[in-house]
Design a protein around this nucleic acid. Structure first.
Lengths: 204, 204
DNA sequence: GAAAACATGTAACCGGTTACATGATTCT
DNA sequence: AGAATCATGTAACCGGTTACATGTTTTC
């Protein structure tokens, strides 16, 4: 049920359409909370029904129209209330670690692919996080600048600091996973000394 | 859909009842894949229907009975096939980091509680992982010993190494989160210099 | 004129959560 | 005798996934 609070946090900055929100979930907020478009549009309607948002029909081009969602006072209260509650911790469900714990059932090649895929996955994430950190530091993020512009001048410093701190954590996590999986590859070298690490054919 | 493979990995060691499995999901496997009992019993019946398991009715006491599930050859193949496939990576959905990224909407006290709760949560996990590492090293884990006993003597070394390696990763993760949240508390000290870190009343 | 981006949905399905529900056996 | 443990389920609900579906506007 965090989706609606992620939406509220975005709409607290400025009114947006479902499509605008979708893009945010594809990049910025999407780094901590993923949501597909098929979930966003229905959720917006539910939130409007619950009084957290107000939708405004605005023309788009000559014939088209779009729906701009504004956060209401109730929406702001709901966001603040949620922020002041303790976070829920979801139970662990980690397919990559589940496999890692039982890698003896895999072939040496599959075990190796497992760790290289882990490294690739987290490397992709890492470069996204580093890109975000760069944008935060350079003040080149459009959303962050809007949030900063809309914030109480005394609080601007904090807005930026919290966002940076969250991305620092994500970065450290990704680096950690990469380092763990790299150690995994070295473990495989030791456990399967005969196997060919590069996947190439061993020629004399 | 990893639940059934976690179940298969457990039943590959020895036949168990739903209740036995439940306990495993409460401790060992539960550290990488959580499942409540209300999910386990229906899943076992589905797996039996799909030919991955065979249930055997055995008496329990004078009038009671219980259902022992055995893995079938199809079950073993399914497990191996899954182990040789690449792992799926779920999209990120992290309430704690979502909150962290927007902590300016929380009160300083709530922000502090957020990080202390994060530390407590991961400290609890950490001590569980350390306990498991200890049991792996001391060979005092009943399940691990059964797995080792049932494994090809050449592979015993690997079984233990993979399990240990998975828990090392979990341990590093937990430590990482604790260290991140501790830095978060120090960040709050800087951002809210007037606030009382210990939550005590400031007396002159 | 075509492609890319903008815009908004529906529907079936499934895995997972929460709550409810019950009874036997073993241990102290 | 009572508590703890063993044992097994059902049912409603909901959040999320996947796939399908359509039309407009802007940009090149």
């Amino acid at each position: 049920m965090s989706l609606r609070y992620a939406v509220l946090a975005l709409l607290a900055v400025e009114p947006m359409t479902g499509y605008d929100l979708q893009k945010q979930f594809g990049t910025s907020v999407g780094n901590v909370w993923h949501a597909p478009d098929s979930q966003i549009y229905p959720e917006l309607r539910k939130m409007e029904r619950d009084g957290l948002l107000e939708g405004e029909e605005v023309p788009w081009g000559s014939r088209g129209k779009k729906r701009l969602y504004h956060i209401t006072d109730d929406g702001r209260s709901a966001l603040e209330q949620w922020m002041n509650e303790p976070a829920e911790y979801a139970r662990v469900r980690d397919p990559a670690y589940l496999k890692a714990a039982y890698l003896e059932y895999a072939t040496p090649e599959a075990a190796r692919r497992h760790f290289t895929a882990h490294i690739e996955h987290h490397s992709r994430l890492l470069s996204q996080f580093e890109q975000q950190l760069h944008e935060i530091d350079e003040r080149s993020s459009i959303m962050l600048n809007k949030r900063l512009a809309g914030a109480d001048p005394d609080k601007r410093h904090q807005v930026q600091a919290f966002k940076r701190f969250a991305y620092e954590g994500l970065t450290l996590r990704a680096q950690q996973e990469i380092s763990w999986a790299s150690r995994g590859l070295r473990l495989l070298d030791r456990l399967y000394p005969g196997a060919d690490p590069a996947g190439e054919t061993t020629s004399a």
